[in-house]
Design a protein around this nucleic acid. Structure first.
Length: 555
RNA sequence: GGCCCCAUCGUCUAGUUAGGUCCAGGACAUCGGAUUUUCAUUCCGGUAACAGGGGUUCAAAUCCCCUUGGGGUCACCA
């Protein structure tokens, strides 16, 4: 297996074949095995921008029938792994992005946790030291820092002093024996240039004479990010490194490391980072307070706050925010909506296509159509995608979701009870388009609260009921007719009320808003007659009685 | 500050590789109208952009140069 992959790789890494996944090899067409990876460090939450990067990696792998790898960058972690990694895996599972190699699914190239791959880094380090591509640097951090600042003051480009390079083998051994601390640096070939052909940015070049020698291993011997990444990317046969633009400046170092190690370099695709709505700044967990003031974020925060408060989650805390994938799950977004919004940040298929299912994304995705400039998350559009996909969802699934949210808010008891399920199903059906996220079910909580706990829209109650003297009498008559009518279902109720209007020469607006307010506490809502039917004769009667007593009391 | 990246409606974007079919298309948002018992949905319609300046060319959103603006990154973090 491995040998096949290598022989295949040899044909595309010779930079003849680019941006294509099929290449000719000795007259026969070989589909190369694309291998992509996403390498989060366990931070305790999944960043929405990171999720988009992961999605592009996943899509590219799936599109090419390749392999998607989840590698855990836990080189400097000391916290509880479950706590730190859990939410990340949870986000992948929720969105349905599976991994071929990763936690619980070790691949042929060793464990996916970098903390368990130390021997590989040690071996690579040894090779670089032996070949002279890397060197031990005994210069003190303070001294290095001093030089850096001096260069800066003189407006010179800082490059490493390399004084340790003048040490003889004996001197090095002596220092080592004496326990003198040193880091290991890559010896940058200063006369060289690094040129990459980035899938989204095209040709990007760097002049090595401007680069300080990067530290690749700490004084305790542990590898640094740039180094571990290169070793792992090579060991795991990663063919395409798809990552956010902020890593572009790491690329020359990584290319140099690959060269020094004698690896084939992977292809690069530096995708734009996800910006905060309406800005070009990277969206960040630390700026939530600022985002709350952002008008483009308004609707999302309103939606989120409303739902989360019902679930007993403190929405104003930074523990859960729109920067995190978990936020959307908690509010009741569905994967299809979130995925659709994510894929359209920085990527388009053509000038028309907006709606894409995951399988359509797989067949249509390409790195070449990723845009270069940073793209802001568009909360309005996210909500719009969300409502589109929610409408596509089969009734049974909508029901399951709403049941969960209702239960978590304590509005219903046993979700397996068939009467409860049937009732909620009717409410969900009645709510129809108003349900964009599962949490929107709370917007029709009048169907779940006790009659005497019904919240009243005071402002509208005053305007449409209290300030219209004639309405009380009408409501009393309607209440009586409701008591007398035989069939308390929407059709007959519709006829009953229409007749009532005719008899009194009233327009719908004279009665319906007041009636709606009394029974639901709201000025607007779904079909009035179906609402009456669902609530049922008894609850409607109770609520009318309660409203009438409010009217009598003048409040 | 050095290095690197980016620049089309309010937002997400198409168009830039091969200059003309673009007095710039779509979507979301917004505004107006129709439908509806209200709200939501749906359907019609409107407002709205090539950062600026120089070139090259018969012709530039598209090519070149400069300016301006925005951003990323400069660790014994990832």
């Amino acid at each position: 297996m491995t040998s096949r992959c290598r022989s295949v790789m040899a044909c595309w890494c010779g930079q003849v074949v680019r941006s294509t996944v099929v290449c000719e090899l000795a007259e026969q067409e070989v589909v190369m095995s694309v291998r992509t990876r996403f390498a989060p460090s366990p931070t305790g939450y999944m960043h929405i921008g990171g999720m988009r990067t992961a999605l592009f990696n996943w899509l590219w792998a799936r599109r090419n029938r390749g392999t998607f790898i989840l590698r855990i960058d836990d080189t400097d972690q000391q916290r509880n792994m479950d706590e730190a990694l859990g939410p990340i895996l949870q986000a992948f599972r929720w969105l349905g992005l599976d991994w071929d190699e990763g936690p619980d699914r070790p691949g042929p190239n060793g464990p996916c946790f970098q903390s368990q791959r130390r021997h590989l880094y040690d071996a690579a380090l040894q090779r670089l030291l032996t070949s002279g591509h890397a060197y031990r640097d005994f210069e003190s951090p303070a001294e290095t820092q001093r030089q850096r600042e001096a260069a800066e003051q003189q407006k010179l480009v800082y490059v490493s002093s390399r004084t340790s390079l003048h040490l003889s083998a004996d001197e090095i051994q002596q220092k080592l024996a004496a326990g003198e601390p040193c880091v290991i640096r890559l010896r940058v070939p200063r006369e060289d240039r690094v040129v990459i052909d980035d899938h989204v940015r095209g040709r990007v070049e760097w002049d090595c004479s401007l680069m300080p020698d990067p530290v690749i291993a700490r004084s305790d011997g542990s590898p640094l990010y740039n180094f571990a990444t290169v070793v792992d990317d090579a060991a795991m046969d990663i063919t395409h490194v798809i990552r956010a633009e902020e890593h572009l400046s790491n690329t020359p170092i990584q290319v140099l490391l690959h060269r020094a190690l004698g690896n084939n370099t992977p292809e690069w695709a530096h995708i734009p980072y996800v910006a905060a709505p309406g800005s070009k700044e990277k969206i960040s967990k630390r700026k939530i307070a600022q985002y709350r003031k952002n008008p483009q974020f308004q609707k999302l925060f309103e939606l989120g706050d409303a739902v989360l408060s019902r679930l007993g989650v403190d929405a104003s805390s930074d523990a859960l925010s729109p920067v995190m994938v978990a936020y959307y799950q908690q509010v009741g977004f569905i994967p299809a909506g979130v995925l659709n919004a994510l894929v359209r940040i920085g990527w388009s298929y053509d000038d028309q296509t907006e709606i894409l299912s995951l399988s359509e994304m797989i067949s249509k995705f390409s790195l070449e159509r990723v845009i270069r400039s940073p793209a802001g998350l568009d909360p309005d559009k996210l909500i719009s995608f969300q409502s589109h996909w929610m409408h596509q969802l089969p009734a049974e699934q909508k029901l399951e979701g709403c049941l969960q949210w209702l239960q978590r808010a304590g509005l219903i008891g046993n979700v397996t009870d068939s009467a409860v399920r049937a009732y909620v199903a009717s409410v969900v059906d009645l709510a129809g388009d108003r349900l964009r996220v599962y949490g929107d079910i709370f917007n029709v909580d009048e169907f779940f609260v006790a009659d005497d706990a019904l919240q009243m829209d005071q402002k509208n109650f005053e305007k449409r009921v209290l300030k219209v003297p004639a309405v009380a009498d009408l409501l009393r008559q309607v209440q009586q007719q409701f008591r007398d009518t035989v069939d308390f279902t929407s059709g007959p109720l519709h006829d009953l009320l229409q007749n009532f209007l005719q008899q009194h020469s009233l327009k719908p607006g004279d009665l319906f808003p007041a009636l709606r307010l009394c029974i639901s506490g709201r000025a607007q809502g779904a079909d009035l007659f179906r609402t009456l039917e669902l609530l049922g004769r008894e609850r409607v009667d109770n609520r009318l009685t309660r409203a009438l007593s409010h009217i009598a009391a003048g409040s």
